[in-house]
C-alpha cells in the first residue's frame, strides 16, 4: 500500500472526500452516542426533529447560522490565501466593542445609528486582524500565533470595559453595559431571535467575495499567493499586500458578526464567553468545509448551525452533557483535516 500524489485533484474528488470525512465524523459521533447508551439513529432523529421539523428549531438554526456565515465567508477567503486567521473570536469581540461604543456614546440620528454601528464593528474587526497581518509582514511573526493570542487580549479588553468605564448603571455588581435604545437594536423575524438584516448581509457578502475571488484581478492575485507563493513572487505580486487585504476582509466580516450578536440578540455589551458562544472557532470548521469557496459557506454555515442547535436539542430532550456539541465539532474538524491527505494523494494497493 502506498500513497501516490495527485497533481490536479478534480473538484469531484474534493466533494467526495469532504462528504466521506463528514460521514466518518457522523459515524464516530454515533459511536459516542452509542457508548453513552443512546441509539445513534434515535439521537440523530431527535436532532433533526427538534431542528428541521420544528419551526422553533428553524429559528435556532438560523440564529446560529448568522455569525458562522459572516465569519465563515471571511475565513474561507483567508484560508485560501494561506493566511491562517484563528482569531475570528477576538475580531468578533472587537466588532462588538466598537458597535457598543457607537451605540452607547455617539449621539446619532436614529436612522444612522445601526449603519454606523455596523461600520464601526467591521472596522474594529478589520483593524484587530490587520494588526496580525502587519506583524506578519513587518516582523514575520506567524499569524496563527498572533491572531490566537489577540483573542485573549480582546476578551480582557471587553471585561475591562464592562467592569470599568462602560459598566451599566443598574447592574447590581454584574458586569455588563447599559442596554441599547430601541433604534439601536436590529429588527428580528417576528417572535424569534433571528436578526435578518445580518443574515441578508451574510448572504450578499458570500456571493460578493466569491465574485471577488474568482472574477477579479485582486482575487486572482490572492489565489496565486495562496496556491503558489513562489510563483506570486515571480509574477511580482506583493505577498504582504495580499495578506493585509485578506486580513482586513476576514477581520471585518468577523466584526460584523459581533455587531449582529450584540445589536440583534444581547442589546448590550456583555461578558465575552456569553457574547459569542465560540462562533469564531466553530467558523473555522465552516470555512474549512467550504474548501476556499466563500459561496459554499452558504451551505456549510447552516450545517454547523444545525449541529449547534441540534446539540441544544440533545441537551434538552435527552439530557446529554452540554459538551456533546464540542465533541461534535472536534470530531468533525479532526476528520476534515485528516481527509486533507486524500485530497492530494491517492491510495494505491499493490
Amino acid at each position: 500500500m502506498r500513497l501516490e500524489p495527485l497533481p490536479n485533484p478534480s473538484p469531484l474528488r474534493s466533494v467526495g472526500v469532504t462528504l466521506l470525512a463528514l460521514g466518518l465524523a457522523f459515524a464516530l459521533v454515533g459511536g459516542v452516542f452509542w457508548a453513552y447508551g443512546l441509539g445513534p439513529l434515535e439521537a440523530y432523529r431527535t436532532m433533526l426533529e427538534g431542528t428541521l421539523l420544528d419551526p422553533r428549531g428553524w429559528q435556532e438554526v438560523l440564529r446560529r447560522t448568522i455569525p458562522l456565515l459572516l465569519i465563515g465567508v471571511g475565513l474561507s477567503l483567508a484560508f485560501r490565501t494561506q493566511f491562517y486567521n484563528i482569531g475570528a473570536e477576538g475580531q468578533l469581540l472587537l466588532g462588538a466593542v466598537l458597535a457598543a461604543g457607537v451605540a452607547l456614546f455617539l449621539p446619532l440620528p436614529p436612522a444612522l445609528s445601526l449603519p454606523a454601528m455596523a461600520l464601526a464593528a467591521a472596522l474594529g474587526g478589520a483593524l484587530w486582524c490587520g494588526l496580525a497581518a502587519w506583524l506578519k509582514n513587518r516582523l514575520s511573526v506567524n499569524e496563527i500565533l498572533t491572531t490566537l493570542m489577540l483573542n485573549y487580549v480582546a476578551q480582557s479588553l471587553v471585561i475591562y470595559l464592562i467592569n470599568g468605564p462602560w459598566r451599566g448603571k443598574d447592574v447590581r455588581g454584574y458586569i455588563y453595559s447599559d442596554r441599547f435604545a430601541e433604534h439601536q437594536q436590529l429588527p428580528v423575524l417576528l417572535g424569534t431571535n433571528v436578526h435578518w438584516p445580518t443574515l441578508a448581509l451574510g448572504v450578499v457578502l458570500a456571493l460578493l467575495l466569491q465574485l471577488l475571488l474568482f472574477r477579479s484581478t485582486l482575487g486572482f492575485r490572492l489565489r496565486v499567493v495562496g496556491e503558489n507563493p513562489g510563483a506570486a513572487r515571480y509574477l511580482g505580486i506583493p505577498q504582504s499586500r495580499a495578506f493585509l487585504v485578506v486580513a482586513l476582509i476576514t477581520g471585518g466580516t468577523a466584526g460584523l458578526a459581533g455587531f449582529g450578536e450584540i445589536a440583534g440578540i444581547h442589546h448590550r455589551l456583555i461578558e465575552p464567553t456569553q457574547l459569542s458562544s465560540g462562533y469564531g472557532f466553530t467558523a473555522i470548521i465552516v470555512a474549512w468545509l467550504a474548501r476556499g469557496h466563500p459561496a459554499l459557506v452558504l451551505l456549510t454555515a447552516p450545517l454547523m448551525g444545525l449541529i449547534l442547535a441540534g446539540g441544544d436539542v440533545l441537551k434538552v430532550a435527552l439530557n446529554m452533557p452540554f459538551r456533546i456539541v464540542d465533541v461534535f465539532s472536534g470530531v468533525m474538524l479532526f476528520a476534515l483535516i485528516g481527509s486533507e491527505l486524500f485530497l492530494h494523494y491517492r491510495l494505491r494497493l499493490r
Binding site: Q274, D312, N319
Partner: peptide
C-alpha cells in the same frame, strides 16, 4: 422533572420554549 445544563442567558427563552412545549 427535567433539566437543561449550561444554558447561556441569551439562550434562556429558546430553552423555556422547548420546555413548555414539553
Amino acid at each position: 422533572t427535567q433539566y437543561v445544563e449550561s444554558v447561556k442567558p441569551a439562550d434562556t427563552l429558546a430553552t423555556v420554549d422547548r420546555l413548555v412545549a414539553g
